[in-house]
Design a protein around this nucleic acid. Structure first.
Lengths: 231, 231
DNA sequence: ACAAAAGTGTTAGCCGTACACCCATGT
DNA sequence: ACATGGGTGTACGGCTAACACTTTTGT
């Protein structure tokens, strides 16, 4: 992203990634301290140029691997931002991607190296340019997805308790789901598999671990949680 | 779209429009017979280059105005297609937009001039390149929108009967909604306003015309028609 | 014994669906 | 009078939300 090399008469193509993770009962966004002008030192999403021989998806994967050390990251297109004046440094069209990662698997050395920081979703600082809009739209898209699909496969560890899953949903929708009803609902979807093992750290009784069944995501159209988003 | 002028080392940016209209109880897509190589004479979506000083949305608006004679067309981003090999003529990234128009208002002279034709949604012919995918994704997006929002404002005439609105939904979801239940549901949403006038052409008794209230779209999150899409 | 989280059971109310039924009017 | 689409009423069933209740086990 070297702005001195900008050709003012060209339109550049880039990707920006809204990287979501789940840690300590909090849904978090990974943001980066810019190391170049303009806006040096300010917070931004991570991005990169789309090379001429790759798709936007491939570019996003490349950037994400570079930053987290992970391959096979879950990716979803969010929106295109193409106002010629959106980036004060030049004429840049950018495709925004939602990326969901398991925080415990990514490389924290790399994160530190690139001056990145996880922020709780309700404490994300002011971001550069139109990155605030990107984050807002990306988060809305994630919430919409979470109402229709049981998400967590890409955010939670391999094995997790129903309570952990519920806490994820609590974090996403900023509300407190009823433990009993939540349990019955998610189990009725028939996408989780109960393991033998129990998690003994959170309660005396212990809670069974579950994992997502090894089937492709079903495209649920009826909402799972109808009243998650209130007005 | 002059392919001879392609620079093979450049990536071009274009928009393609999935133009939906509603006519004779049918949801239709406007497709175009290509007048240039490659794929001359085959059917495609209408598109155009994004100029360096405009956004993708502005380009789509410009194209749509050029084709239909209409301004203020309802537009919604659908998806970006950016595989460098997607267009055999060159390296073209394209942003696809859903456009909803009132068929009776657009210029049919222009349509004819550009060799365009309305096809019922279930009779759309094979389209060039990846335009089939574009149409599929665009239609899915429209259906999803129709489950969450009462659409019709951009597709129906100013005044319309509940039966017309129901026929639109029948067309979108390829099913037959119960007349009584449909009526009660849409009226309960409180976005329609009953007019004095009646339509006497469809029945002896006559049916009251309605219009959409002059308020901005509400972003409904709870689905209007939960079971519209069946599996 | 008690606390605290896990997990089950129960009930009341809402909403969607199916369908019966009345209404208005041109032929 | 009757056929036809417009419009209303009703009853059943499934789902959700609220919450009471039981289970398990470390302290």
């Amino acid at each position: 992203m070297l702005y001195d090399q900008y050709d003012k008469n060209k339109r550049y193509i880039s990707v920006d990634c809204t990287i979501f993770g789940y840690e300590q009962d909090q849904l978090k966004l990974l943001v980066f301290k810019r190391i170049i002008e303009p806006a040096l030192g300010e917070w931004s999403l991570i991005g990169g140029w789309v090379k001429e021989n790759e798709s936007a998806e491939e570019a996003a994967r490349r950037v994400l691997h570079f930053i987290t050390g992970l391959s096979d990251i879950y990716l979803e297109q969010v929106h295109v931002f193409s106002d010629p004046k959106r980036d004060p440094g030049g004429n840049v069209l950018t495709v925004v991607f939602n990326a969901l990662i398991k925080v415990e698997e990514h490389s924290s050395q790399l994160i530190e190296k690139y001056d990145a920081k996880w922020f709780s979703i309700d404490q994300v600082p002011k971001l550069i340019f139109d990155h605030d809009d990107m984050f807002r739209i990306a988060f809305e898209k994630l919430r919409l997805k979470a109402t229709y699909n049981l998400i967590g496969r890409q955010l939670l560890p391999e094995k997790f308790t129903i309570t952990q899953l519920r806490n994820l949903y609590n974090a996403i929708f900023q509300k407190s789901f009823d433990p009993g009803n939540f349990r019955k609902k998610v189990l009725s979807l028939n996408v989780l598999e109960q393991l033998e093992e129990k998690d003994m750290t959170e309660s005396k009784k212990g809670a069974f671990y579950f994992k997502f069944k090894d089937i492709e995501e079903s495209n649920v159209v009826e909402p799972i949680f109808r009243n998650a988003i209130k007005f």
